[in-house]
Structures are given as C-alpha cells and as structure tokens.
Amino acid sequence: MTFDKVIEDGRLWAVRYNHDKENALQKVLAQWSDASWLADFFTQNFDDLISYFRITNIEDAIYQTMEDRDELSCIIMDISPDANLDQFFRPLENDRTQEMMLGKEKGRPHRRSWLRLYAIKLNVGVFIITGGAIKLTRTMQE
C-alpha cells in the first residue's frame, strides 16, 4: 500500500492499494464517470433510487452523478492552503473515519448529492482518502 498526494501541501492524500495503477480517489472518480458502471449500479439499486430520492429515470440519475462527480473533483482541485479540511469532511460514527459530501445544490435546495468520499483523519488535520460510495439510503445500514 502506498499513498498519493492529492493536494500539494500534504494535508490530503489518497491510498493506492496493492500496486494498483490508480489510487482510491481516481478509482471512484472513474467509476462515477463510467456510464456502463453507473447503468449497472442504478439498475441494481433502482428501488432505493425511487424510495429515497423519488427518481424514476435512470438516465437522469446517471447524468446527475456525472455532474456531481465533476463538482466534487473541482472542489478538491480548488482546495486552498488556507482551507480547513474539517469543513469538507464530516465525522461518521467513529472518530477516525470521515465522509465528504457535496452541500445542497444551489437553486435545488431540496436535493443533496448521493456521492460520498471517505477518508481517515489523522489527528493533526491530515486526511487520507480511502474510497467512496453512492449512498442512496438514509443510513449505511439500510
């Protein structure tokens, strides 16, 4: 396992597992821009898409995912040296794991993105991205 620096000042990294060509961040960004992968995902999880987000059109769900993926990537690319990463990542149930999600979209205050990036927070303000997910349910247990 090795680590790739995501921002130049070394506060944000992404894990690269077992001689993979891509790190965890690149992998999820690639998945979230792959129409075929997304088609499979939303087809398999169609019931959750309808019940929580009230979206019945898979094409729209795929397109929105791609758009949200771009927005997430831009946010990360634009992280400034002064930015407090605690504002981007919020804690999950335990103290170490954090998740990053897009805020409420402008102009569409009732829809939040289902994209999640997960990172481990070292206790000195350094984060390591370990993966991501599309979260279609209210809780992870669902």
């Binding site: 396992m1 090795t2 790739d4 620096k5 990294w13 891509e22 790190n23 690149q26 960004l29 690319m77």
Partner: peptide, 13 residues
Amino acid sequence: LSRYQSQEDSAWR
C-alpha cells in the same frame, strides 16, 4: 506519509 508515497505520480490532477 511521504516515506510511503507511490513511486509513480498518479497524475490525477
């Protein structure tokens, strides 16, 4: 972390 940095740059940016 830098000691365990990947040999190849990820070029993600």
